[in-house]
Design a protein around this nucleic acid. Sequence first.
DNA 1: CGCAGCCATAGACGGTCATCGATATCTGGG
DNA 2: CCCAGATATCGATGACCGTCTATGGCTGCG
Lengths: 119, 119
Amino acid sequence: MSKSVIAPDLVGTAACCPPLLARPITQAQADHVAPLLKALADPVRLRLLSLVAAHAGGEACGCDLGDAFDLSQPTISHHLKVLLDAGLLDREKRGVWAYYRVRTGVLASIAQLVADAPG
Amino acid sequence: MSKSVIAPDLVGTAACCPPLLARPITQAQADHVAPLLKALADPVRLRLLSLVAAHAGGEACGCDLGDAFDLSQPTISHHLKVLLDAGLLDREKRGVWAYYRVRTGVLASIAQLVADAPG
DNA sequence: CGCAGCCATAGACGGTCATCGATATCTGGG
DNA sequence: CCCAGATATCGATGACCGTCTATGGCTGCG
């Protein structure tokens, strides 16, 4: 069964340092970061992430998220799971509802990788 | 097919401003940025980009790039074309050789979108 | 001109992905 | 205990992606 397990810890350390444009990244680094970017590389998931992040308190209920799209509930749930498995999102279930929160640290790592030398 | 035309100008302006985590991005913005991330979301293309950027003078000859991978020459050419069509790379043909250069501005736009408010 | 080397394109093939409808699971309320 | 609503999972399907081999178009050299 799934649990695609991308090892967010490894990403956290591997993606933070080499700015991609400064010197050639290793194959291992590329292999670790690519799945994260792949999880991001979808309009629905980008909007989901943005919706969650911009929501009051930094967290959003799944019941709210579906309304913004013309997609079925299983499809939304699927995209949320992709973001979850990639380590870009956190889920907390309270009662009947599921609340999502963005892992801003991972996002920041990706940005740092893609960005040119920030200095 | 061919010429997938992602309108790099539009991306340049659309991706620069909203930090994704600050407020919900529009569907149009997501639709414009997702193909860029998709072009990035491949280990081979990440390494290609990094190799080109880190090369002397900021440009690299295609003949050098293939040596770093266990892939056929057409496959490398294909990945370079994907990066080219996405507007992440520039190509200049001098004599027999093709020289590639990273469009750092587009990369910076992506980073700015993904990044949290830097302040 | 003819050969050799660099690069791009075309077509094919297997794998992965996005989406759906149907269904299962869980929770709270009457 | 049973129902209703929220969410997750399953299985199928059509589209897309990464890779290959084969081939074609260039350029420079003898």
